[in-house]
Each structure stands twice: as structure tokens, then as C-alpha cells.
Write a protein that binds this DNA or RNA. Structure first.
Lengths: 101, 101
DNA sequence: CAATTAAATCGTTTATTTACGATATACAAA
DNA sequence: TTTGTATATCGTAAATAAACGATTTAATTG
């Protein structure tokens, strides 16, 4: 990316907001989250049926949402149940609300 | 990006939210917007002084914010005055609020 | 019309993202 | 212990993003 020599540091709030926003920055991920909001939880396989995307692609999107802290996976072998991470969801909501106020 | 053959179509709401979110998905752009919120408007040059980034890089970020509709540029030759686009700002606020509710 | 000034755009490099198919992993049940 | 199933991870290709310096553009002033 050809970064500037000494990496810029941003305020923690800024980093956090950008991080959440970035995770929300793809329509598929928005749809996944909407889906999770509707039915509280679901398995990877459910989403693979809903979207015309490869299983690996869905899994990748889930990983990003998880890395951003927006969702949480619970082992229900051999499946994995994904839910909104309520704590971080509230946090994101708060940060966005504050930002737009 | 190796897209699926027939492009996926998303709901308009989803596309819009993802678009706004993507624009917010970089800390520099968040900081630019915070700056604009504080002092309502500013010139490109002001931002170049604030951030340790090249003028062209700042300009690029401004373009993205403008393309997303979050800011608006007004000619004040030889400068350009950037302000928050209030209409779309409200729209974004509404969309995010709805999404998180 | 020429010079100045501020910002945009161009061309380039490197990093990251998005997508895929193929393969590996983890756990339950047989 | 092997088999089956659901999901993650790997490897890869193509697109996009982020940064830079150099150049161009647009408008005012001399």
C-alpha cells in the first residue's frame, strides 16, 4: 500500500469506528447481519443456501464479521451457530450514534 | 475480484448502507469527517496540514467521501471548501440508526 | 495573456479484498 | 477406528484501495 514511513496513529474511537464500518462495507455482510437480526442466529450452511456465493466465500465474510467483533460463533457440531455479538453490537450502535450526532 | 457470473443484486437499502459504511471504513476519512463536523467546513489544504499524508492522498480520500455523498465541495477559487452534505448525512444517520435498532 | 495558487488527476507501486475450487479440520455417530 | 458432515483454511487470480510524486487544471491576479 506504500504507507508513509512512520505509521499514522489515530484516536482509539476513530480506529474502532473505522473497523466496524469497514466490516459493514460490503452488501453481503450487511445482508448476513440483517439475516442474523431477523432470526437471531443461523448456521453457515443456511447462508450458503441464501446467497449465490461459494461456501468458502460465505465463510470468509463470516470471519471478517467475527474479527470485527460483530458476530460470534458457537460450536454445535458439526455445525457452527452464528449470532450477533450483542455486546459489541451495542458498542457499535453507540459509536455510530455518537458519530452522527 | 473473480466475481460470480451473474452479478448479485442487493436491496437498495443494503447497497446504500454498504456504500456509506465503506466510505467510513478508513480512519483518515473518519478523522476528516470529524474535522468537518467540528468546524463545519474546511479546505483541502487545511487537511493536508493536519495529516501526515501527501496532498494527493488527502484529495483521494475527499473524492471518496464526495462520491459516497457524505461531503460536498464548493468552489472558492483557488480553493475548494468542503462541508458535510447535510442531506445525505441525515440519510446516513437514519439508515445506520435503523440498521442498529 | 502570463503567473500564481490550490486542488484534482495521472501513473505507478504495494497491499488488501473478493471470489473461487480444493483441501484440511473437527466433531458425532457407526 | 473409520465414516460422514459442516465448516474453515489454503492457494490463487483478479479487482480495488491506499499511498506517493509528478503533472494538469481552474480560477484569480498582475
Amino acid at each position: 500500500m506504500k504507507r508513509t514511513i512512520e505509521n499514522i496513529t489515530y484516536k482509539k474511537d476513530t480506529e474502532e469506528l473505522a473497523r466496524f464500518a469497514k466490516a459493514l462495507g460490503h452488501p453481503t455482510r450487511i445482508e448476513i447481519l440483517k439475516h442474523l437480526e431477523n432470526q437471531s442466529c443461523c448456521f453457515t450452511g443456511d447462508l450458503v443456501e441464501v446467497f449465490p456465493l461459494a461456501q468458502s466465500t460465505i465463510s470468509q465474510h463470516l470471519k471478517e464479521l467475527k474479527d470485527a467483533g460483530l458476530i460470534d460463533g458457537e460450536l454445535k457440531p458439526p455445525k457452527i451457530k452464528y449470532c450477533i455479538d450483542e455486546k459489541n453490537w451495542k458498542k457499535a450502535k453507540k459509536i455510530f450514534t455518537k458519530f452522527f450526532s
